[in-house]
Design a binder for these strands. Structure first.
Lengths: 255, 255
DNA sequence: TATGCTCTAATCCTATAGGATTTTAAAGGG
DNA sequence: CCCTTTAAAATCCTATAGGATTAGAGCATA
């Protein structure tokens, strides 16, 4: 009796296992620079911090290592991977240019009613996100961007491709670049002018609208089943995105 | 003193950590059907079988899950993933057609002397492997194939692409299909004739030579810096490979 | 026969101790 | 003052036992 009662008193039965939750928590910590790039990750400390034992921590870290978010040096320990170098940044976008336009084309080819609904719903969220102010807007837009691109790779119907895109974790990497730049702005106001401009120009005002506009074009093409247009629109969008974020990567690498 | 001596008396200092070795061991067990597709993977049993404690087993399984080789059902346990369905098989090759021809083109563009040497060395190994008999030949050729394609994705210079290819584990999946077919042949000699033919035709006699011939063409083009030819040769090779293996996937799925 | 309960087995998670390795710091010699 | 050697601390990695929770089988009852 009292056992059942005790269980009912909890917020509810645990659905996912502890290691999965831990994985998400640690990923979020990396996302938000609570674990900074390059920083050592102490298992004991994490264990205390998250209130779980070492076992789930280890499983989460093993998965994160497989994802390329955490690096493991045998007998030394784990540490968060560094920010993308310019080369890695470029490779990432080259890779995206290889797979995402094709994904958009296939999505347009195979689009279903549920697919259309999913795209429309996502674009509605984006429209709402534009109304937010500064920081929460950036966060909301980043999340929308991640979901939008993930959705299209899934709608391509190719599981290998979708999984491969997922594992690039490109939005996490881009967001980390953003946070790093932001931190630099706060901590060092005597930075070159161009970093200031970078922040204003590429993250704040016009950039959000531009990305959403491009997303809308892609969405329209896919929903309309126009394969070639969808492909081209996605290609242009990624190239535009590359140009927008490139200075961010370069600025960090020059420090 | 005696500590140094004791260390020297061992076969050598352990380079990699136990969890890494465990990862490779379990992967090999999946590779060879010692852990059959769909079979449950018991942590305790593995722990006894490999002579290591649960901790490294858990880490290895977490990574294998991330690789898509093992599936985890929360609070139920791990199990090896099933063989590729025809759809997954098709997706995988479609994805390879997307990235590998481009990789070959880039490899031709950026080829260095060390790159040339690596390709030549790999093709020499392949030449030797052709001399082996039946089963060991197939194994040697599979391993060569894996190394060859991995090498080219690495020579593309694009880290994202190389990593993405690596994580498809395509050769492991293809080899599992092969083993499954072979097992069927042994255990059920009354299978339709076409499976017999499949085995003879696609795995044994001419197939090895054909793949090596195509590899040689790709190798020549890359070493010669002929981008377009390298691209086309890789494209044709993968399509040829798709046609060769496709019946294997279909035969298994029809069981 | 179908439903509900109990019990067993399996699995996940925790806790803790000890060996192995690296890093840090200090002491001594040049 | 600086460098090398040595010792100690910190950290990682492994091993093992046991509690908590869940899934599934077997059995009783309507």
């Amino acid at each position: 009796m009292n056992r059942a009662t005790a269980q009912a008193e909890k917020i509810g039965p645990r659905r996912s296992v502890l290691s999965d939750e831990t994985y998400e928590m640690v990923k979020a910590m990396i996302f938000s620079h609570e674990i900074a790039p390059g920083q050592r990750v102490n298992i004991d400390a994490l264990s205390l911090r998250l209130g779980v034992s070492q076992t789930p921590i280890r499983e989460a870290l093993a998965r994160l290592e497989s994802d390329g978010l955490i690096a493991k040096e045998p007998l030394k320990g784990y540490s968060a991977t560094n920010l993308l170098t310019v080369k890695e940044f470029d490779d990432l976008f080259r890779f995206r240019l290889l797979i995402e336009p094709w994904a958009a084309e296939q999505a347009a080819k195979n689009i279903s009613n549920t697919g259309k609904a999913a795209i429309r719903a996502e674009m509605l969220i984006a429209k709402e996100a534009l109304k937010f102010d500064s920081n929460s807007k950036i966060e909301a837009l980043t999340e929308h961007d991640a979901r939008f691109h993930t959705l299209i790779t899934q709608l391509s119907g190719n599981a290998s491709l979708a999984q491969s895109f997922e594992r690039t974790h490109c939005h996490l990497h881009l967001f980390r670049l953003f946070v790093a730049n932001q931190k630099n702005l706060i901590e060092a106001t005597d930075r070159p002018q161009f970093v200031q401009e970078l922040f204003e120009q590429y993250y704040q005002s016009g950039s959000g609208q531009l990305a959403i506009k491009q997303h809308n074009e892609i969405a329209r093409a896919i929903i309309g089943g126009e394969q070639k247009i969808a492909r081209q629109a996605m290609h242009d969008h990624i190239e535009s995105s590359l140009k927008r974020f490139s200075p961010a990567a370069e600025a960090i690498n020059e420090l």
